[in-house]
Nucleic acid binder design. Sequence first.
DNA 1: GCCACTTCTGACAACGTTGTCCAGCCCCTC
DNA 2: GAGGGGCTGGACAACGTTGTCAGAAGTGGC
Lengths: 358, 358
Amino acid sequence: MADTARSAGSRAAGHRRHAERRPTMKDVAARAGVGLKTVSRVVNGEAGVSTDTERRVNEAITALGFRRNDSARVLRKGSTSSVGLVLEDLADPFYSPLSRAVEEVARAHGALLINGSSAEDPERERELVLALCARRVDGLVIVPASGDHRYLEPEMAAGVATVFVDRPPGRIEADLVLSDNFTGAREGVAHLIAHGHRRIGFIGDQPRIHTAGERLRGYRAAMAEAGLAVADSWVAPGGTDPQRVRADAARMLDGTEGTEPVTAFFSGNNRVTVALVRELAAPVRRERAVALVGFDDFELADLLSPAVTVVAQDPADLGRNAAELLFRRLDGADDEPRRVSRPTRLIARGSGELPPSL
Amino acid sequence: MADTARSAGSRAAGHRRHAERRPTMKDVAARAGVGLKTVSRVVNGEAGVSTDTERRVNEAITALGFRRNDSARVLRKGSTSSVGLVLEDLADPFYSPLSRAVEEVARAHGALLINGSSAEDPERERELVLALCARRVDGLVIVPASGDHRYLEPEMAAGVATVFVDRPPGRIEADLVLSDNFTGAREGVAHLIAHGHRRIGFIGDQPRIHTAGERLRGYRAAMAEAGLAVADSWVAPGGTDPQRVRADAARMLDGTEGTEPVTAFFSGNNRVTVALVRELAAPVRRERAVALVGFDDFELADLLSPAVTVVAQDPADLGRNAAELLFRRLDGADDEPRRVSRPTRLIARGSGELPPSL
DNA sequence: GCCACTTCTGACAACGTTGTCCAGCCCCTC
DNA sequence: GAGGGGCTGGACAACGTTGTCAGAAGTGGC
């Protein structure tokens, strides 16, 4: 009684920290005058507790501000009801809808999402993933930054369900959800060719990144199918740094010795597309209309002039599919790893339909 | 020996789940032929283990694929080295940099970030926050959706550090990081007035959301300071639904009985701004240039025509400040709750400098 | 009034880790 | 050679919860 009063008094201090030990089920039991297990039953909504006892326990719970300690629960039960998501950058407009979609599916399954950004650093990916494993997440959704995921073998053997998304895992078998990057890129480039372009530049990310490699492959395939040769200087797989993209674009637009200038660009992802749009909108570039098809949709693409034609992926759809694959495993499926391919969609808005000029 | 061979064999099955019990420190100890506590010492890098013993233990760890169970660790130590972040929508381009910034600060302090979206639903915010508390996060960063956070009192009393960001908490005292919404909005509207506008429409979110209310207050203050009356029909605090925003804008642009049409808009957030840009870009609207200043910056604002003048907040800066306040508390600070106000920045790009037409 | 049965409750062990404490060993010194 | 000190290793309890199992209390039938 005296104890309770003091407790309430110190709680009123509001911002004061480390004020008191957290009440446990034992404390609740003592206050309600019941056994420990009875409190556990009430907290977990188990049957077999009389209404009167239940009421007394609930009163004690609110009076003490008790909250079950999930660490102890996890230790006992073995499952955490949480899943981990590791991706490149939480703040990337491509990945944030993916992350949100995974969160929604997790929520529907009563699981919490813990996520982290690898910043495209293999070592950081590994650290994050292993930290999540140490916390005993039930499953993992990973957008790989690393090329070797054998470090996950013991974890997967121990029962951590793992799904890769957007890029395939390295040296390991696991569920996988990918956009059809190759076909998407091929169609995008074919679209430019269909509008009369013969000299098309490709600017994209480093081909060691799987998606980037596939898109480059799609570009080459479309050119080859149309019987068009690709000059070395038309391909810039150098990364997404805006300065660099603009420099690469400028070089292709101005032509080099022996190679004619390009009349269109196919861009490997949305960051490149945005940098390209900036370059093409620069005063010195405006005199000539250069066609552009970009991989990945982005907000306001339809409001630019010309509006930007894109090969769109649906990141939320990727995330949803990956999460569903994950919970399928968590529900007990243990058949062969699946590989899900999601189609892309060409959205013609104007920039990809400009005829060649020059 | 035989055991190990079998274990390796089953692990090779790769995708097979629930294959085997996870090894514990006890298993490692048995295999290395040492005591339990010695394994613990090696795992935690504690002193007092001979190099030879350490090597044996490490071999056993890799052979068994042991990974420390953090649930048990947390249960024993009391601290989780993780912080929670609850915001409105992870995928919102305003919040994702904030989230990322919190993640970076947490990482620098060796903590993991667990985050969730409240979807602007007070009940869901409460559920999420309490789930995080049950997991015994060390601290919380919250973008409130609810107007009453007294449910956090027992948690804060029990030592969960809590920082609110972007919006103030309801009926509770706690650390707080806010943009100076009022001043930002007032300056934005004053900017339009300085460029000759007298009839300015305001479209924003519901004023029960603190930031929205402050921005509306800033709008009214700027108008009042310039001696301009505000017609009821110029203010649409109805929310961010694009259809609705466009309808509100259309009504203000066409004028109503007794009220002249507006010549400029001040928009309450980036979602509204984008919807407005769409409406102003519609073919039927193009004949008349309407000025626009938006609260919140957004990608490509500079590439639209006209480029969009905005009052910019720095969401990453908000997140960083909030996280730093949080870790300050976790490091033991227990002075009065702080209230940090971050300035906004007016970025003139064109749309806000258009003169009144009509 | 007694037994069988149901309903409700509580004692106890276990989950995997870490902190405390003590024991054994080796080397050094007197 | 005995005693002291430093180093290494291990037994044990505790963290807060849940599953198991058995006991207590209440109910109905004979």
